[in-house]
Design a protein around this nucleic acid. Structure first.
Length: 129
DNA sequence: GCCATGACGTTCC
DNA sequence: GGGAACGCCATGG
Protein backbone atom coordinates (compact mmCIF):
# COMPACT_ATOMS: atom_id res chain seq x y z
CA UNK A 1 0.00 0.00 0.00
CA UNK A 2 1.23 3.47 -0.83
CA UNK A 3 2.53 5.77 1.90
CA UNK A 4 -0.12 8.29 0.92
CA UNK A 5 -2.91 6.06 2.02
CA UNK A 6 -1.18 5.40 5.27
CA UNK A 7 -0.75 9.13 5.83
CA UNK A 8 -4.33 9.80 4.84
CA UNK A 9 -5.60 7.19 7.26
CA UNK A 10 -3.34 8.53 9.96
CA UNK A 11 -4.71 12.03 9.47
CA UNK A 12 -8.29 10.84 9.48
CA UNK A 13 -7.68 8.83 12.64
CA UNK A 14 -6.37 12.05 14.15
CA UNK A 15 -9.70 13.85 13.69
CA UNK A 16 -11.19 14.40 17.16
CA UNK A 17 -14.59 13.00 17.97
CA UNK A 18 -17.32 15.49 17.24
CA UNK A 19 -15.25 17.25 14.61
CA UNK A 20 -15.12 16.95 10.84
CA UNK A 21 -12.51 17.62 8.17
CA UNK A 22 -12.74 18.11 4.43
CA UNK A 23 -11.08 16.02 1.75
CA UNK A 24 -8.97 18.95 0.70
CA UNK A 25 -7.68 19.56 4.21
CA UNK A 26 -6.93 15.88 4.74
CA UNK A 27 -5.02 15.85 1.48
CA UNK A 28 -2.95 18.82 2.56
CA UNK A 29 -2.22 17.35 5.98
CA UNK A 30 -1.24 14.13 4.28
CA UNK A 31 1.33 16.06 2.29
CA UNK A 32 -0.42 16.21 -1.07
CA UNK A 33 -2.35 19.45 -1.56
CA UNK A 34 -4.85 19.13 -4.34
CA UNK A 35 -5.13 15.39 -4.00
CA UNK A 36 -8.59 15.57 -2.51
CA UNK A 37 -9.88 13.05 -5.01
CA UNK A 38 -7.21 10.64 -3.98
CA UNK A 39 -8.38 10.95 -0.39
CA UNK A 40 -11.82 9.88 -1.51
CA UNK A 41 -10.28 7.01 -3.40
CA UNK A 42 -8.34 5.93 -0.34
CA UNK A 43 -11.38 6.07 1.89
CA UNK A 44 -13.42 4.10 -0.61
CA UNK A 45 -10.89 1.31 -0.24
CA UNK A 46 -11.42 1.12 3.51
CA UNK A 47 -12.72 -2.06 4.95
CA UNK A 48 -15.66 -2.31 7.30
CA UNK A 49 -13.44 -3.49 10.13
CA UNK A 50 -11.11 -0.56 9.66
CA UNK A 51 -10.51 1.74 12.62
CA UNK A 52 -10.49 4.81 10.40
CA UNK A 53 -13.35 7.22 11.18
CA UNK A 54 -14.16 7.88 7.52
CA UNK A 55 -17.51 9.43 8.45
CA UNK A 56 -15.71 12.47 9.86
CA UNK A 57 -14.59 13.45 6.37
CA UNK A 58 -16.91 15.72 4.40
CA UNK A 59 -16.56 17.71 1.22
CA UNK A 60 -15.75 21.43 1.11
CA UNK A 61 -19.44 22.29 1.36
CA UNK A 62 -19.65 20.52 4.71
CA UNK A 63 -21.97 17.91 3.27
CA UNK A 64 -21.79 14.20 2.79
CA UNK A 65 -20.58 13.05 -0.58
CA UNK A 66 -23.20 10.35 -0.66
CA UNK A 67 -26.73 10.63 -1.87
CA UNK A 68 -29.24 11.31 0.90
CA UNK A 69 -30.80 7.87 0.43
CA UNK A 70 -27.47 6.09 0.20
CA UNK A 71 -26.82 3.65 2.99
CA UNK A 72 -23.33 4.96 3.71
CA UNK A 73 -24.68 8.48 3.70
CA UNK A 74 -27.30 7.62 6.30
CA UNK A 75 -24.73 5.86 8.46
CA UNK A 76 -22.37 8.80 8.17
CA UNK A 77 -24.97 11.34 9.21
CA UNK A 78 -26.15 9.17 12.09
CA UNK A 79 -22.63 8.69 13.42
CA UNK A 80 -21.87 12.39 13.25
CA UNK A 81 -25.12 13.30 14.95
CA UNK A 82 -24.26 10.84 17.68
CA UNK A 83 -20.97 12.66 18.15
CA UNK A 84 -22.70 15.99 18.46
CA UNK A 85 -22.18 17.36 14.96
CA UNK A 86 -25.27 19.27 13.91
CA UNK A 87 -26.40 19.73 10.33
CA UNK A 88 -28.03 22.79 8.86
CA UNK A 89 -31.44 22.47 7.15
CA UNK A 90 -29.63 22.18 3.84
CA UNK A 91 -27.85 19.08 5.11
CA UNK A 92 -24.52 20.80 5.54
CA UNK A 93 -22.45 20.81 8.72
CA UNK A 94 -21.11 24.10 9.97
CA UNK A 95 -17.41 23.81 9.28
CA UNK A 96 -16.75 27.01 11.21
CA UNK A 97 -17.97 25.22 14.33
CA UNK A 98 -17.06 21.57 13.73
CA UNK A 99 -14.26 21.89 11.22
CA UNK A 100 -10.88 20.42 12.08
CA UNK A 101 -8.21 21.59 12.36
CA UNK A 102 -9.82 24.81 13.58
CA UNK A 103 -7.17 26.91 11.87
CA UNK A 104 -8.38 25.75 8.50
CA UNK A 105 -11.88 27.03 9.13
CA UNK A 106 -11.19 29.57 11.82
CA UNK A 107 -12.37 32.46 9.73
CA UNK A 108 -13.67 33.30 6.33
CA UNK A 109 -10.37 35.05 5.77
CA UNK A 110 -8.60 31.71 5.68
CA UNK A 111 -10.75 30.49 2.83
CA UNK A 112 -10.34 33.78 1.01
CA UNK A 113 -6.62 33.61 1.48
CA UNK A 114 -6.53 30.17 -0.02
CA UNK A 115 -8.70 31.26 -2.89
CA UNK A 116 -6.57 34.31 -3.55
CA UNK A 117 -3.45 32.22 -3.43
CA UNK A 118 -4.88 29.78 -5.89
CA UNK A 119 -6.01 32.53 -8.22
CA UNK A 120 -2.64 34.21 -8.01
CA UNK A 121 -0.76 31.06 -8.89
CA UNK A 122 -3.07 30.50 -11.79
CA UNK A 123 -2.46 33.98 -13.09
CA UNK A 124 1.27 33.51 -12.80
CA UNK A 125 1.00 30.52 -15.03
CA UNK A 126 -0.48 32.76 -17.67
CA UNK A 127 -3.58 30.64 -17.98
CA UNK A 128 -5.76 33.69 -17.76
CA UNK A 129 -4.86 37.29 -18.42
C1' DG B 1 2.45 4.40 -21.61
C1' DC B 2 -2.02 6.57 -22.90
C1' DC B 3 -6.94 7.12 -21.65
C1' DA B 4 -10.85 6.97 -18.61
C1' DT B 5 -12.70 7.31 -13.96
C1' DG B 6 -13.62 8.94 -9.15
C1' DA B 7 -16.40 9.43 -1.37
C1' DC B 8 -13.09 16.45 -4.57
C1' DG B 9 -11.90 21.72 -5.02
C1' DT B 10 -11.84 26.28 -7.03
C1' DT B 11 -12.98 29.54 -10.43
C1' DC B 12 -16.14 31.59 -13.80
C1' DC B 13 -20.68 32.38 -15.85
C1' DG C 1 -26.48 31.62 -4.89
C1' DG C 2 -26.61 27.65 -8.19
C1' DG C 3 -24.58 25.24 -12.07
C1' DA C 4 -20.91 24.41 -15.56
C1' DA C 5 -16.03 23.96 -16.66
C1' DC C 6 -11.32 22.99 -15.69
C1' DG C 7 -7.71 21.20 -12.59
C1' DC C 8 -5.96 18.15 -9.42
C1' DC C 9 -3.63 13.22 -7.97
C1' DA C 10 -3.70 8.21 -7.94
C1' DT C 11 -5.66 3.86 -9.89
C1' DG C 12 -7.21 0.49 -13.34
C1' DG C 13 -7.80 -1.22 -17.93
Amino acid sequence: MNPFYHRIYRVVRHIPKGRVATYGVVARLAGRPGAARTVGWALSALRDDSDVPWWRVLNAAGRSSFAAHDHSGVVQRALLLREGVKFAPGGAANLALFGWPAEAYDSVAAAQTRAASSRRSRRLKGLRT
